[in-house]
Design a protein around this nucleic acid. Sequence first.
DNA 1: GTCAAAATCCCAATATATTGGGATTTTAGC
DNA 2: GCTAAAATCCCAATATATTGGGATTTTGAC
Lengths: 73, 73
Amino acid sequence: MDLEEIGKRIKERRKELGVDQRTISELSGVAVNTLVAIERGEGNPRLSTLAEILDTIGLQLDLHPKKLNYETM
Amino acid sequence: MDLEEIGKRIKERRKELGVDQRTISELSGVAVNTLVAIERGEGNPRLSTLAEILDTIGLQLDLHPKKLNYETM
DNA sequence: GTCAAAATCCCAATATATTGGGATTTTAGC
DNA sequence: GCTAAAATCCCAATATATTGGGATTTTGAC
């Protein structure tokens, strides 16, 4: 789940909703330039920025365990 | 899943692993000050910063659908 | 292939996350 | 209640995300 995949998921979801970037920008309060960058996987948004967008399009962040890179700390 | 809960989850997971902040800081490359703020729910990290920490402690971000705030766009 | 809308790009200004250093407070074992 | 380690705080410097404005390109319908 990297920047690029998150961007894809956002764009995909927005298309499903049938809305354009400007609308999401206005509803979320995030500038359209910022949204463009994120959708294109070129962004590295603050968590709040990402959350505002996700919230607007009906997606949510979640946290789950995965395998550790280092077994010994 | 807001900033505060994410911080709690990170701290909780770190404790389970039995490692201190300095160690996570060194392994992840994120400054300890930044880690402190995030664990305390006072941070608003960039996605990359959050991802580096999560990756180090064996957690992963995920995206899933939730109810929309606005049914009509 | 024209046209309008949507998406993307460029740039300068601003806001804010991140960092490192050092000091202070809190925590936990003895 | 001492003590060392861990956690937190403060601050100035730096890096970078965000924004708004306008221009350009791409897309899709006709």
